[in-house]
Amino acid sequence: MKDGEIVMQMSEEKGTALLGAAYRHLKVSYPKFFKMDAISKAGLIASEILLADERERFVPREDRAVVLFSRHGCEADDIHYRETITDGNYFPSPALFVYTLPNVVTGEIAIRNLYRGETSAYVLEKFDAGQIVSIVSESFEDPVTDSVLCGWVDCADDNNVEALVFQVENGDGEEFTADVINGILTNYK
């Protein structure tokens, strides 16, 4: 869903299968997507929906930050990596290990869009719109940052994916507040 409009609807698929279907539906051409862990896929798809209509994408820029929040961090990928280091099956996987960091999703979005600004990942004890709004608002203290792609991207495991992302800009317009976030959640739950 984007700005209140349904972008695509699936009743069968969930989690990473849903993200794969979204990748095809949105006609994103970025084969690296298939190497990503669940949270990176979720962040990438959410950002593709958010940015679909933006003009002048893929031009290097330093003025847009990516600031994401989650509860589970990279736990979905940690589970897969741990399976490669058990006593019975000891083949540590570098391809899985590199995703065992909660901030890699922000890096993937930066790489895809050529954002050279700030990228930050925070893990919260639970979803907290107030905390998200404070930290995002404070990120504009960096004089280079004029725009922040931000929000909640959380994967407890491969079957449970949540993403609610925003493009927040310096300037006039609707203020980014906890009420705005909570209002969206109340309307669409």
Binding site: E62, I111, N113, Y115, V144
Partner: peptide
């Protein structure tokens, strides 16, 4: 203090030290 991304690679630094 600031944070900047290379926008280059997830597990290797930029060859040009961009970030």
């Amino acid at each position: 203090g600031v944070v900047r991304n290379d926008a280059n690679h997830i597990s290797g630094p930029s060859r040009t030290g961009e970030g």
